[in-house]
Write a protein that binds this DNA or RNA. Sequence first.
DNA 1: GTATGATTAATCAACTTTGATCAATTTATA
DNA 2: TATAAATTGATCAAAGTTGATTAATCATAC
Lengths: 192, 192
Amino acid sequence: MRDRELLLLGILMAHSQHGYQINEFIEMNLSRVTDMKKPTAYATLDRLAAQGFVEVRSEQAGNRPVRKVYSITSQGTEYFQSLLKENLMSGDKMQFSSDIGLMFLDHLSPDDAAAFLEERLQALNHDIARHEKAPPHGFGLGVDLAMDHHLVHLKLDRDWLGQVIENLRQRSTENSTSSRSRGDLANTDRSH
Amino acid sequence: MRDRELLLLGILMAHSQHGYQINEFIEMNLSRVTDMKKPTAYATLDRLAAQGFVEVRSEQAGNRPVRKVYSITSQGTEYFQSLLKENLMSGDKMQFSSDIGLMFLDHLSPDDAAAFLEERLQALNHDIARHEKAPPHGFGLGVDLAMDHHLVHLKLDRDWLGQVIENLRQRSTENSTSSRSRGDLANTDRSH
DNA sequence: GTATGATTAATCAACTTTGATCAATTTATA
DNA sequence: TATAAATTGATCAAAGTTGATTAATCATAC
């Protein structure tokens, strides 16, 4: 919620825009950073307007539906600065929804687990490829930084997943030859 | 929402429990994995009950408020398996709320930016220390895996942040001596 | 013995988020 | 040119989420 506000104010810091424009921009360029949907953006912008952080004026081009053009106010700029500071100072909550699945890995055979994770690894590799192929955005330096941040985490996940799958596979063959040597799955001692 | 269900069903796979117990467990042990709050858990459990995936029976110990004891049904077990598969196959959305802040780094002086991020790095280091000091949970292997997954990402973030701060600091002194040599902040070429 | 605070247990009202939809307009297609 | 399809622009009802609260019990100390 706080982050939604930061994102929208940050976008408006560049220049005033109408709702459709903003949402377009988010969908096209910022899907890696946020999953905010249109109605949420409108709702958040309205809230920001009610608090005096953005101004709205209705505009009509031709006889298309009225567009709402949002501009950041000077109080909004201050608020933006404070949100930005807060965001930079306190890090992510760092929650991976995939950790929920991992927690229950014991309910699966190592074979099945490995197969499912292999699928995910494939998808991850595609995502990394897309990411690396994409040209630098051209919006400031910060955006490039954020993209790099995202990318290094994707790559870590790829490597980590690879190791886990390897271990699962080993575990599976060990199990079938029934030679029980302690091949601990966790604590792969990737001592960083 | 899907993940909430997976989490709750997974917990019930171990054994039947009442609501308070479940929420207690989540707060105490799973804060790294989820931020689901009590009312959401109750709501989700009710939804699962309505769909026949869990059974609820009211229990009264002494004359304390009635407790609702939840058990997973056989259909629930099937559903759990499908959710687990889905979770393992399709990875995270991988969104870092901190990326939103990073995107707007250009609105700050390199000095301020570095100072704010330094603060965050500090917090990160504390978190990593806490994480490493904590004894292995003792719940199955999967839980340890999830914890390790979390940890490696924290460490990556620490290292990455360190580099960014270093670059910002360099940028700042470069700027004050006004010798403009291209010290690109992004693309630090951490070629993995 | 009784005021004080912690624990057990769950719910509600308020807020946030989104899938679905609407309605006009422009572009493509037959 | 008539018609389907895509785009522009935004809203609403429904669903998900949570801070605050209720209410009883147990522990503690005064």
